[in-house]
Design a protein around this nucleic acid. Sequence first.
RNA 1: GGGCGCAUAGCUCAGCUGGGAGAGCGUCCGCUUCACGCGCGGAAGGUCACAGGUUCGAGCCCUGUUGCGCCCACCA
Length: 839
Amino acid sequence: MDALYDPAAHEPRIAERWLAAGVFAGGSAPAGESYTIALPPPNVTGELHMGHALNGSTQDTLIRMRRMQGFDTLWICGTDHASIAVHAVIEKQLRAEGLTRWDLGREAFLERVGEWRERTGATIIQQFKRLGCTLDYDHERFTMDDGYVRAVLTMFERLYHKGYIYRDNRLINWCPTCASTISDLEVRHETAVDTLYDVRYRITGSSEFLTVATVRPETILADTAVAVHPDDERYRHLVGGTAVVPLVEREVPIIADEYVKMDFGTGVLKVTPGHDPNDFEIGRRHGLEELSAIGLDGRMTELAGEFAGLTVTEARDRVRQALSDRQLLAGERPYEHEVGHCDRTGDRVEPLISLQWFMRMDELASPANQAVRSGRVRFHPRTQENTYFHWMDNLRPWCISRQLWWGHQIPVWYCPDGHVTVAVSEPGACAACGSAELERDPDVLDTWFSAALWPFATIGWPDADPRLDRFYPGDVLSTARDIINLWVARMLMMGIEFMGDIPFTDVLIHSTIQAPDGRRMSKSLGTGIDPLELVDEFGADATRYGLLKMSSTQDVRFDRGAIEEGRKLTVKLWNAARFALDKADVQAQPVAPGPGAPVEDRWLASRLDAALAEVVRWVGAFDFSAAVKTLYAFVYEFCDWYIEASKARLYGEDPQARRDVSATLVWAFDMILRMAHPVLPFVTEAIWDQLPGDRGLLMLASYPQPQDGMRDDEAERAMADVIAAVTAARSDGRVRLVLPHGFAGEAIVRSLVRTAEVTVSDVATVVVVEAASEDVGAARAKLEVELARAVAERDRARGMLANERFVAKAPPAKIEEERAKEARFAAEVADIEARLASL
RNA sequence: GGGCGCAUAGCUCAGCUGGGAGAGCGUCCGCUUCACGCGCGGAAGGUCACAGGUUCGAGCCCUGUUGCGCCCACCA
């Protein structure tokens, strides 16, 4: 074995071997239960970022452990076409060339997207391989491959026929740069400081005015009412009358609506159904006309008269000026409020009325909601369920059509009479009138519409596929918190609707790793840290370890030290293995220490089993940080104590002792490598590789079962004493050891002699009393230690019982507990005293 | 505007149903080269954000304050 472990020299080679084994497809363990995870599909052209690396590490740890435990595992692999995100990237390139997507036209644009995809490729999938992720690469899916498109269109058709999908003229969120609608969830609200203008509306048949406040004077041109609160005494007499909209001189009704806040400004609201979500609702309630002064091109429409053709910002200034000129501007002041922005482009969202496709989700939501409320689907951490419920309880129609080109084109055809035909493949004739003159809806679907099908469209749906029976419903969905509603909620709804069952039972919401300074990791801020650079520098194992250690139920700051710790652990394991391979008889059959084995061997078995049980428990509870820390602590304990202790026998004269300790060491490595493999797959496989005999791939070996029979309290206690005694001796320079009989601690002792700068003659290696010691003094010392400990414990219990208030007020059960403790310690003390006296 | 969460050692974080303040890194001291200096041992370092309250007892429960993060949201 190489003296230095160089991850770069081993990891790619090992990754190749895993891939060649071809066992990631699912179905590799037909006898076992299935265990399925669907990878959240990264964007086609994405690069592996910290979130992917963390999520990949957690999912791979789960998959590897379950595979080793005999489950038939499937980790679904693939990428997302990311409609709007890809548009944003390509159109930015085009802008740099002075072009727009319309200059190219749909076909050329899509060609360009194709080329770009070709060039940047699905590198992210390669990067997952580098991290050691055992995804089902052979069945990689793409949300726009043929089968998947058919699934998406089938879903659209079925939902249309159920009446969940419909076309409507409603107020939608319009992103001017995308030139498309976006959904409510794609709107970010940000604080902005604008100007609030007070504008005067003349009351018809009067010389009086009503003053309304608005931050968007240009929308006055589309006003269709003025509203007051029904209980507002000041204006009650005006309700039913009309007012005149400034500039356009349109007479509009004065209406009463509960929505109006009496205490805001003058308590009078201008109603613009065409450009404001609230006003839209008011308009629908009162049957108001819905006018548009702003067009889909972001410019003022014909309705705006003299302002037609201006951009919104230009129009705002000009309208302000015009109002001012006519003495209709009563005031203006800075105003801080929340403004919607496009999540992708950062543009201010323009609320506009437009004919779009919508999906209502209330009926679909109810069983999905129930699945979580009943606990069939559990979020980890649990608190994240609030996010889910809050959204699910307040669902509004989802605008699913996008005026984009890259994506699933809506499977709807219109005939000249405007009839609608919905079909998965192009129909020959209009379903209503038989006309052959059909034109397909040019719009595409929201990316999240197709993503909602991911857990089952990837394994065969809508066809009958045996994999659907085998791997659906899946088990775990691991993702970031920001797409709980965008994606997780919709997968639950669609899974229940189309598959009749939930797509997974556990939703892992992993932490967001922030930059070391606490800011969000982002390319644009320059705060990003490339996980691949970490892999290059520290190795994939170390990176996985570090990310898992950092992972938590809340956001954490990136800590390079955690990755370094991972590297230390990797190297430590490697070197420990090198020791065993060089010094022990590795041809020995692995033998678990039995009852007659030396105390340090029994201690090792006990500790190893405890650590194993803990790791299994933590991974099962999705606490990867705790799992990984347990592993680290155990490996160090093993190296610092067991390996040191083993040297006495290994380097000693007794051939039988040498054989025994070799058998134990080989056994320990066999166990530790299996145990650590899901977290540190590469280094463990590399070591496994060098063990003698044909063992096959460690990846495919079985995961050890914790066994209570392994626990050996006596050995644990004995070693605890040794460790305590050695530690104390080391620190105060006095070396007075109390060692169990047969304890092979000479290496430690030798080391102590050097450390403490004492000579061998100062060292008393003694035996424990249980071993029928010939050194009574040492045995007495050993018992004294035990006695002191028992007395200390007893005094602690007495401390509680001596507390009068405790006795007076503590619950009886607590007091009982303390009494029992005291009694137990008293008995122990008596026993030890008796044994001391007998010496 | 509503909701959720976080403030514990210089740094990054653990602390389960309230009864002994922890880990890793860093610092300091010492050791060592027969697996590993990517090593070994030890030490120092914390009125657990602040102010109240409940309790015999609070890092943990309650109230408030301050600072930070996130999610949701149709008040011009």
